[in-house]
Design a protein around this nucleic acid. Structure first.
Lengths: 201, 201
DNA sequence: CACGTACGATACAGATCTGTATCGCTTGCG
DNA sequence: CGCAAGCGATACAGATCTGTATCGTACGTG
């Protein structure tokens, strides 16, 4: 791993990121900042300080790289999600509202550039596309999870409430992308979710 | 206009679309279906049956073409919007709910491929970009309009309600793009808007 | 008729993009 | 030591993309 200084600088337990994960880090940042098409392989290679052949050894094509990044973001998303929900013995309603409190904090940060899966669905509209497929399956899982959590709080029409909450979530993500650092509508996502939950419960 | 048969086939009052608008029609369809970057100028030219130089005489660059299309879609959007709201003497609450009834019908159609401005914001993240700027200004006007309509119904916190409704709208647009023709969460947008309006009014 | 305008068709320039080929270096390990 | 694996660097192939140049033609208007 000649990119990083010797392992001595790493705290105990830290692992130097593998080459593949380092590439995913840099590529993901560029996908976010520039879009999937505009972030060329040459740029990713230059920014990550990695040889082009190294990238292609880990990811046979750019499509594979994009799909791999989305898969990794999916895992990260669910860690965030469960963190927002809190411990499993928490009240179901608090868990559901906790998700939207965490989400509002996330989209309120100027560092939030939106939801990678919505961006992928925007740029790869064909359902047959790898990236589109990963994105759709991700959102389907989120939808399913929100419906489950809506059922857990005893909502009258749990499926409807879950879908309504998904609309709020995705709207907040897109607001974060559109309205940069300024005060944007995403800051209304918690209050909206809270009201919908109260009405349905 | 050699593309179309003689004007005899046109009903009285119909205008054959000008070359520029014909190009915008075809380009817009391709932008929707393939994304802005994936819809190349050569393809637009081929699909529209127009010479490349003709396109570049009307639109000095592809960026100009994209911006011109977004500007035209903006005008079309507001015609839809006002149509959904209905006559001005209608009750303010019915006008606001009418917007979301119309929106739900739109996003429920399998022909709906999402919101061009959200797609533009996805693919052109840099705020300095022409397309991003058009998109942001559009959404800002929608936000402003929803806040005004929220004030018209005497909502407790009109600005908050307007923002909440914008989240629902954009979430519904993205759901339409992600979930193709199938039953998707966008069908929950009216019930969600209705509940938020009821709570706030 | 004559002429200007708008358009179609084709070829092309220059840049950029994905993906490959090749060579040399370092490093860990038996 | 000797070797294999992983990586950096460079050059390149082939396709594609935006934008331009050029020529021929149909058509409307004086």
């Amino acid at each position: 791993m000649p990119r990083v200084s010797p392992a001595a600088v790493l705290a105990a337990g830290d692992q130097p990121p593998s080459t593949a994960e380092h590439i995913l880090d840099v590529a993901g940042r560029l996908f976010f900042r520039l879009g999937f098409a505009a972030a060329g392989v040459d740029l990713i290679v230059r920014e990550s300080g990695v040889a082009k052949m190294t990238l292609y050894r880990h990811f046979p094509s750019k499509d594979d790289l994009i799909a791999a990044w989305l898969e990794r973001v999916d895992a990260q998303f669910w860690r965030h999600f469960e963190g927002w929900a809190g411990p499993e013995d928490r009240a179901a309603r608090d868990r559901l509202l906790g998700v939207f409190a965490g989400l509002e904090k996330l989209v309120s940060s100027p560092k939030c550039l939106g939801c990678p899966f919505l961006l992928a669905a925007s740029e790869f509209p064909e359902p047959a596309t790898r990236a589109h497929d990963v994105a759709r399956r991700h959102k389907q899982r989120v939808r399913q999870r929100l419906r489950e959590m809506s059922a857990d709080i005893g909502a009258a029409d749990a499926d409807a409430l879950g879908d309504q909450l998904l609309l709020l979530m995705d709207g907040a993500f897109m607001a974060a992308r559109l309205f940069g650092t300024a005060d944007h509508p995403g800051r209304a996502v918690f209050s909206a979710a809270s009201r919908l939950v109260s009405v349905a419960a």
